[in-house]
Simulated scan of single mutants.
Amino acid sequence: MGEVVNVLVAFAVIVFIFRWATSSNDTTEQRSAADTLGFRPKPVTQVMIDTISNMFPDIPVDNVRYDLLRTGSVELTSNKILERGFLDAPPPAYYTLFPRDTNATSTARPPAANATARAAANKHSESLISRYHLQDRVIKAESILEEQIGGKAVWEDTAEKREASLRERKAQMILAARQRLLAQQQKTTSASNKA
């Protein structure tokens, strides 16, 4: 029985020495950061900061990094922004560890975001007629009456029939809106020619 106790005490001493030896390597850096900030900072990657900054571009990057250092979680930080609408500004001690980058601007978008914005602008510049492939129906649409557009839809039996009915109503609304726009443009051009 005495040998088992000796083995357990020896094992506990070895574990204690191992933990002390491995934790002393990085504690000075962590201890200084913890002393400066007032809490033990969690590991934060640039991807985490970029994720929050892309979701909420109006929140300053320093506020995002400071909150991520506290929480260590993109989800918690984004929930805090959604609930409160803002993040607390970091204290002056934060800037001793993370000095501001004077070359980078917080309003600059990454190149991927610019490409996405250009693609969205191109998609919006495309007309509804070409987007919904209604070019062949534009000529036939001259005789569509305003009363035929909209109205009550009949509930179809199958999902496919309901989808086709919805597509047809959408096409009719687009064509009717085009007719109204053309009529309005004709009125303005005739009024400007008379003046």
Rank of each mutant, 00 (worst) to 15 (best):
I52F: 03
H133R: 09
A141F: 01
D136L: 14
E142V: 11
R118L: 10
P57M: 04
P60G: 07
N103M: 12
R65M: 03
A21T: 09
F39I: 14
H124F: 13
L87P: 00
T77H: 03
S106V: 11
L128D: 08
R19M: 14
L97Y: 05
P111K: 06
A115E: 14
I49Y: 00
T45I: 05
S32D: 04
Q46S: 14
L76D: 13
R40I: 15
L134W: 02
T96Q: 15
G85I: 08
G72Q: 04
P91W: 01
A119L: 10
D50A: 14
P41F: 01
S53F: 01
I49G: 00
L76S: 13
I59W: 00
D35P: 01
I129N: 02
K123R: 12
K80R: 13
S127A: 06
G38A: 06
R137C: 02
R100L: 09
R84P: 00
V47R: 11
T45V: 07
R137I: 02
P92C: 03
E83T: 07
G85L: 05
K140I: 10
Y66L: 05
T105K: 15
D136F: 06
R70D: 07
R70G: 03
T107Q: 12
S24M: 09
K140H: 07
T96K: 15
D35A: 09
L145H: 12
F86L: 09
S143Q: 13
H124A: 15
P43H: 04
D35W: 06
A34K: 11
I52W: 00
T28I: 02
S73A: 11
A34E: 15
K42D: 05
S125H: 08
I144W: 04
T96V: 14
T102F: 10
F56C: 06
N25F: 14
N25A: 11
S143C: 10
R137S: 06
D35H: 03
N122K: 13
H124W: 13
